[in-house]
């Protein structure tokens, strides 16, 4: 058993996630034939892409270490959906400005998080939790009285219908983002510095890494990714409704953990996280196909999450 666990290739989080996803698809197809049909898979991937994009930001913040975590992503997603919907308001022509404004808003929220965490030294959990409260309040203000905006037709098409007879645009977007993040984390100095501050902040400081600047930038990126997910969500559901983002907060963290990124920081990457997001969504939808109550589904879901976590690494013993 011990030898098995030591074999890194066999128990590499990415291999585990892929294996589990495949097993789940077989299982799902067995329970309800058609579960693993191409159309079904694509619609699952669309749902997963929303979570995956949010988890990208979450992933970066967690990689940066010092208990990095971003609970405000839920609020940003909701706000972004409202802002984007109101700016474009059903018009294709306004998509680009809407995207620009929304990303700016998301980035700005992240900037405040980053400044609070880095310079006032508020623990990330607390800072982003407080920010979540602010955003929930802001949502009420933004939505009140104003007719909530609608998605532009192109955006709806982008998020749900195949693009040029291939996959839906949102999946292409996700793929490009994944490639971009892999490149960023692996082939740029910035990416390596994220791992550096995540694994050993002291050593990073000694090797001239601008630790503060990078940490702030991670929160900014997290805000922007969440905003992007909010725009996609607007396209997916056609219009924005209250607090759509909140349900994504903790799943975005779990997806990161299932992707093999340690909450302690500095270890892991985005491919795993993307697979983690898929795993989570497939698991959820398999539970929906099983004909049991919502309650049973939740219990099985919770227990499965715990079980999987045992696979993904436990803390160290105190005795050496």
């Amino acid at each position: 058993m011990k030898i098995l666990f030591k074999n890194e290739n066999l128990f590499n989080p990415i291999t585990v996630a892929i294996t589990l996803i495949i097993i789940l698809f077989f299982l799902g197809n067995f329970i309800s034939p058609g579960f693993a049909s191409p159309n079904q898979i694509i619609s699952l991937l669309i749902v997963a892409s929303l979570l995956g994009i949010i988890s990208a930001g979450q992933n970066l913040v967690i990689l940066g270490g010092r208990e990095g975590i971003d609970l405000s992503v839920g609020g940003v997603v909701s706000i972004a959906a409202v802002v984007a919907g109101n700016v474009m308001d059903g018009s294709n022509a306004a998509i680009l400005p809407a995207v620009a404004v929304t990303l700016f808003v998301g980035g700005f929220i992240g900037l405040i998080n980053g400044i609070g965490v880095t310079f006032i030294k508020i623990p990330p959990l607390v800072m982003t939790l407080g920010m979540l409260g602010v955003l929930q309040g802001l949502l009420v203000v933004v939505r009140n009285g104003v007719p909530s905006g609608n998605a532009a037709p192109f955006l709806v098409h982008f998020a749900t219908k195949p693009l040029l007879n291939t996959f839906p645009g949102i999946l292409w977007l996700w793929l490009i983002l994944t490639l971009f993040l892999v490149f960023l984390l692996k082939h740029t100095v910035y990416g390596l510095r994220i791992y550096a501050i995540g694994t050993n902040e002291r050593a990073a400081k000694m090797t001239a890494v601008p630790v503060e600047l990078i940490r702030v930038s991670l929160f900014v990126l997290s805000g922007m990714f969440a905003a992007l997910a909010g725009i996609c969500l607007l396209g997916y559901s056609g219009s924005s409704f209250a607090n759509v983002g909140e349900q994504y907060i903790l799943p975005s963290i779990i997806a990161v953990v299932f992707g093999g990124t340690s909450l302690a920081g500095g270890k892991g990457g985005y491919v795993g996280t993307a697979l983690g997001a898929i795993l989570l969504i497939v698991l959820q939808s398999i539970l929906i196909t099983i004909r049991i109550d919502e309650s049973g589904r939740q219990m099985i879901f919770g227990a499965t999450l715990l079980l999987l976590m045992i696979f993904y690494g436990r803390g160290k013993m105190l005795r050496s």
Binding site: I253, V257, S295, G302, L306, M309
Partner: peptide
């Protein structure tokens, strides 16, 4: 079991809510 408190208790909370 030494799991991360944040994610582990989130998982148990899903279980409790299901119950």
């Amino acid at each position: 079991l030494r799991l991360q408190a944040i994610v582990a208790t989130f998982a148990t909370s899903i279980f409790f809510m299901g119950l």
